[in-house]
Simulated scan of single mutants.
Amino acid sequence: MDLVPLLPAELDAATLALVSAASFCTSFVTAAFGIGGGVAMLAILASLLPPAALIPVHGLVQFASNAGRAAMLLGHVQRGPLAPFLVGSALGAAAGGSVAVALPPAAVEIGIGLFVLWAALFAPPRAMRAGAGPAGFVSTLLSMFFGATGPFVAAYVKTLALGRMEHVATHAAMMTAQHLLKVIAFGFLGFAFGPWLAPIALMAAAGFLGTLVGKRALMRSNDALFKRALTALLCLLAARLIWSGAAGLL
Score class of each variant (00 low, 15 high):
Gly190Met: 04
Ser221Leu: 12
Phe145Asn: 09
Gly214Phe: 02
Ala127Ser: 09
Leu74Glu: 14
Ala106Glu: 08
Ala232Val: 01
Pro125Thr: 10
Leu7Cys: 05
Leu7Ile: 06
Met165Phe: 15
Ala70Asn: 12
Leu181Met: 14
Gln62Ile: 02
Leu16Arg: 03
Leu73Gln: 00
Glu166Tyr: 09
Ser98Ala: 14
Ala130Ile: 09
Pro51Val: 13
Glu166Cys: 12
Phe188Asn: 03
Gly131Met: 01
Ala32Val: 06
Ala135Cys: 07
Cys235Asp: 04
Ala130Leu: 13
Ser244Ile: 15
Pro195Phe: 03
Gly68Ile: 03
Val61Thr: 08
Ala247Trp: 15
Val116Pro: 00
Gly131Tyr: 04
Ala130Glu: 10
Ala46Gly: 04
Val157Cys: 06
Ala102Asp: 15
Leu54Lys: 07
Leu241Cys: 08
Pro124Val: 10
Gly190Thr: 09
Lys227Tyr: 10
Ile55Glu: 00
Phe152Ala: 08
Phe145Ile: 00
Val138Gln: 04
Ala232Cys: 09
Phe191Leu: 06
Ala247Glu: 15
Phe186Gln: 09
Leu48Asn: 05
Thr170Ser: 08
Ala17Val: 10
Gly147His: 01
Met41Ser: 08
Leu197Ser: 02
Ala9His: 14
Arg126Val: 14
Met165Glu: 15
Ala106Val: 00
Ala64Gln: 01
His179Ser: 00
Ala246Lys: 13
Val19Cys: 03
Gly68His: 05
Thr26Gln: 07
Pro134Asn: 04
Met128Glu: 06
Ile200Glu: 01
Pro199Tyr: 05
Val57Gln: 03
Ala13Glu: 15
Lys158Gly: 13
Ala132Arg: 03
Ala46Ile: 03
Ala71Cys: 13
Phe193Ser: 02
Trp196Met: 06
Ala21Phe: 13
Thr149Asp: 11
Gly194Asn: 11
Leu212Trp: 14
Pro124Ala: 10
Ala106Trp: 12
Leu18Tyr: 11
Thr231Arg: 15
Ala206Trp: 02
Val99Asp: 11
Glu10Met: 13
Val153Leu: 05
Ser27Phe: 06
Pro5Ala: 07
Pro104Met: 02
Leu162Gly: 08
Val29His: 05
Met128Gln: 10
Ala31Glu: 03
Gly59Arg: 10
Val213Lys: 04
Val183Ser: 02
Leu86Ser: 06
Pro51Cys: 12
Leu241Glu: 00
Val153Tyr: 02
Asp2Val: 09
Gly113Ala: 00
Ile242Glu: 00
Leu48His: 11
His167Gly: 13
Met128Leu: 15
Ala52Arg: 15
Gly96His: 09
Gly147Lys: 00
Leu230Glu: 04
Ala238Cys: 08
Phe33Glu: 04
Val183Ile: 00
Ile35Tyr: 00
Ala119Val: 04
Phe146Trp: 08
Ala206Asn: 07
Ser89Ala: 12
Asp12Thr: 02
Gly37Met: 08
Gly163Met: 12
Leu142His: 02
Ala204Lys: 07
Ser20Val: 11
Val4Lys: 15
Ala161His: 13
Val108Arg: 07
